[in-house]
Computed example of a mutant assay.
Amino acid sequence: MPKTTAMILGDIYDAWRAQDIDWLASYLPNDFSHITNVPASIGPTAGSCHGKRAVIDRWRAVMADFEFLTFDTSGLITERNRAAAEIPFRYRHRASGKLFEMTKGSFWTLEDGWPVRLTEYYDLAYIQSFKASLMSENAD
């Protein structure tokens, strides 16, 4: 039985929760793109990123910096060539122990049911505040 879009994205999200980047990468084409509404000046995990290797390196950095506590994809809505979800999540910053929690919007573009692009929207003010709190903590 061929996998449905919901099954493929479910596996991708399960791999993310498990912090298993190799499993996650097995679902992405070499020309996969990841775009966030966060300016690239915020850091290496922000802005546009193209190519499976670059995207995987980006996500490895997130996994290195954060422990994933909750990541709720139960609201995922799928169609053959697109999918979307509001994803509430809670991570713990490994170095500081601070909680990082918000809801992001994720929008997938698929071709023949397989992901080719992920565009995500975050609370930019929250991210800037969190980053500033880490910087001020490091300055002390």
Rank of each mutant, 00 (worst) to 15 (best):
S96T: 15
N138F: 13
I12N: 00
V62M: 10
T103Y: 03
D112A: 15
T78G: 12
P39K: 02
C49L: 11
A18D: 14
I87L: 10
C49E: 05
M63Y: 13
I87T: 10
S41F: 13
V116M: 04
Y121L: 09
K52V: 01
L99P: 01
N30P: 11
A6K: 10
C49R: 07
G10W: 01
T36M: 04
R60L: 08
I35H: 07
A15N: 02
L124P: 01
T70A: 07
A64G: 01
D140G: 13
M7H: 12
Y121G: 06
I21T: 13
M1H: 09
K104T: 12
L9D: 05
A6R: 09
T73Y: 09
R92G: 00
G51P: 02
T119R: 12
I8R: 05
M135C: 08
W108E: 02
I77M: 07
N81T: 04
L134Q: 05
A6V: 01
A15I: 00
T45Q: 04
I42V: 15
S48E: 15
E137T: 07
I77V: 15
E137C: 02
S26F: 11
A125H: 13
Y91I: 00
A25Y: 06
A15K: 01
R92W: 09
T103Q: 05
M63F: 15
S33D: 11
T73N: 10
D57L: 07
E137F: 08
D72G: 04
W114I: 10
R53G: 02
A83S: 11
M102T: 09
D31H: 05
S96M: 09
I77F: 05
D72A: 08
T45P: 00
D123T: 00
P29I: 02
V38D: 03
R53L: 06
M135H: 11
E120Q: 12
L124I: 14
G75M: 05
P2M: 12
Y27D: 00
W23P: 08
P2G: 07
D14A: 15
I35G: 00
L110T: 02
R80F: 08
A25T: 10
